[in-house]
């Protein structure tokens, strides 16, 4: 019974973390038509910054989390200004430079903290919530709550603000958006910072739970791509729904059967979606 409860909780947590990463990926694709392969590395950087600020600099976990978000957002802004902006007319070029950024960030992490060190981040919420005989670790609950809060904030941002309106306009038709006086450059930077910051936040939130390594972003980006393809490229709602479906499926299969089988099944699902439903769960491709 404890296993089932654990698995359910882990599914919820994985859904929350995956959603945070995938939303950012979907957002950037929607606004800029860039498939950011370095997105998983932004998650990794988030975890590293959290570790560095909370242990080496000895600040609190929450300030570390804020630093992680700010730092990754900064990287996002740099990527937009230094790379994507210069390659606007070359979508394949954008995709390829993100692979370059992926490698650079990975190497930077290796250089910064080494490969074989065990990096520990202490959670501000140790222990577990006990309900009769079951234990629900507090930090996992915190990750879920934090992710939900962030997603609600993002939904508000996209639905109720001028920024959200501009983002949706750009996702539909970039030329028409710029004719309406939307500054493509500003919105792109904002979207990229938001997207990177969300990945950084996810990394920071997961830092006390997962093993921090320079390569921790790889499975995350693969999952995120599977999810946004399932959800329909560029659709934020689709990304959230697909995150929940996929992460729950993956967590259950890897707990009860085997993680390799879960990975193979996940890849087959992605392939099936690509073949039979290329526009994903949310129908249209061109959507935020």
């Amino acid at each position: 019974m404890q296993i089932l409860i654990d698995t359910l909780l882990n599914s919820a947590m994985a859904s929350a973390a995956t959603a945070l990463v995938a939303i950012g990926l979907a957002l950037v694709f929607g606004v800029m038509r860039v498939e950011n392969f370095a997105h998983g590395e932004l998650y990794m950087v988030g975890a590293y910054v959290t570790w560095y600020v909370s242990t080496d600099l000895q600040l609190t976990y929450f300030s570390a989390l804020v630093c992680a978000v700010l730092f990754t957002a900064l990287i996002g802004a740099v990527m937009e200004v230094a790379l994507f902006r210069r390659l606007r007319s070359n979508p394949v070029g954008c995709l390829i430079v993100t692979i370059g950024v992926l490698l650079v960030l990975q190497t930077a992490a290796v250089w910064f903290a080494g490969i074989n060190r065990t990096l520990l981040v202490e959670s501000p919420f140790p222990g577990a919530l006990r309900v009769s005989s079951f234990a629900l670790p507090w930090h996992r609950l915190f990750v879920i709550v934090a992710a939900i809060v962030l997603m609600l904030a993002l939904t508000w941002l996209l639905r109720r603000t001028m920024f959200g309106w501009a983002v949706r306009a750009m996702a539909q038709d970039r030329e028409a958006a710029s004719l309406q006086g939307i500054s493509i450059g500003k919105i792109s930077i904002a979207a990229m910072m938001l997207s990177a910051g969300l990945a950084g936040a996810a990394g920071g939130l997961m830092a006390p739970i997962v093993r921090i390594s320079p390569f921790m972003g790889q499975p995350v980006i693969i999952t995120a791509f599977i999810v946004i393809i399932m959800g329909g490229l560029g659709s934020v709602e689709g990304a959230i729904i697909a995150s929940i479906l996929y992460s729950t499926f993956f967590t259950f299969v890897s707990t009860y059967i085997d993680s390799t089988v879960a990975a193979i099944a996940g890849l087959c699902i992605m392939l099936a979606v690509l073949i039979f439903m290329p526009s994903g769960l949310m129908g249209r491709t061109e959507k935020v």
């Binding site: 692979i99 370059g100 950024v101 992926l102 490698l103 650079v104 960030l105 990975q106 190497t107 930077a108």
Partner: peptide, 9 residues
């Protein structure tokens, strides 16, 4: 990998 990344960019 980092060197490759820089070259690629």
């Amino acid at each position: 990998p980092g060197v490759y990344g820089l070259i690629l960019i």
